[in-house]
Amino acid sequence: MNIFRLAADISHAVAIVLLLYKIWTSRSCAGLSLKSQSLYVAVFVSRYLDIFRFVSFYNTFMKLFFIIGSSATVYLMAFKFKHTYQKENDSFPVLYLILPCIAMAFVLPYEYNPVEILWTFSIWQESVAIFPQLFMVQKTGEAESITSHYLFALGSYRGLYILNWIYRYVVEDHVDWISIVAGVIQTVLYCDFFYLYITRVIKGRKLDLPA
């Protein structure tokens, strides 16, 4: 564990809590992509099949937190506040995201066994899971401020992991190419959003995109 990884995990957890808080307090999931949130559940469940293999209390606790938090988000969006879900704006064709990730999992896992293939799938799937949400923001041309904070926390997390990977390469000689390449792609996807967030949301303005 190092400071970058801890900050990244905290940022990731904060993102999930922010989203649940937004949905619960506004009693609405307007502007949120159920497709992205469903992909995250798939990501966490496929990656954390090793949840019963003990690494540390922290590791197990965080895995449980991510699975339960993302599942609760999907539950609220798909059932409790379903009437507020803007299905017509959540129109990104997700199979174009899922199929290449399945292909990558079978073509380039570290080892050929079910757990490794699912782990590889989860890493690639996570890297592009935010696409439907960013697509929705682009399509409607706006995001509520708390949704922007959520996206910023979620985007920061993989960016901080890049610093963690640099640190681990230097200090521990540890390299995980699949995580690094997918993590860089994931972070790059947020660049446009980061720019808008810093130039608009931090200055107290709403995230309205130019038409």
Binding site: F66, Y110, E111, E116, Y161
Partner: peptide, 10 residues
């Protein structure tokens, strides 16, 4: 190593 045991990150 690249075995599953090295996937200690979240």
């Amino acid at each position: 190593g690249h075995s599953h045991d090295s996937h200690d990150e979240l």
